[in-house]
Amino acid sequence: MKKHRIFLGMTLVECLVLGLLFFYSHTVLETNEKKLIPAKQKMVKYLELTDLSIWTEARYTRHPSQADLFTPFQDFPSAFEHFPAGSILAPGRPADSTTTLQIRR
């Protein structure tokens, strides 16, 4: 009757480790939301930034929110999209039918 005790003990330890990691994430989240996120929000507000600086390989991957959905294909008539990040970015979600702005764009 030893093995099941070891198994249950190990499972409990694993749950505890995971719980501690989640608790750590909660603590970091609280600290960041108090300090780091407001500092970043201030930066976005002052510098009027619109996009995350993740993909710097092409204009439409550097500023996906500022580009048209068809920008990757604008290089020349019937151009293909060829940047790897283009396959990571999802196609934009269909616009809400109630938004006149989307229809007009």
Binding site: S53, I54, W55, T56, E57, T61, F83, P84, A85, I88
Partner: peptide, 8 residues
Amino acid sequence: LKGWSVLF
């Protein structure tokens, strides 16, 4: 994620 981005 990086793709061809030199600055990542």
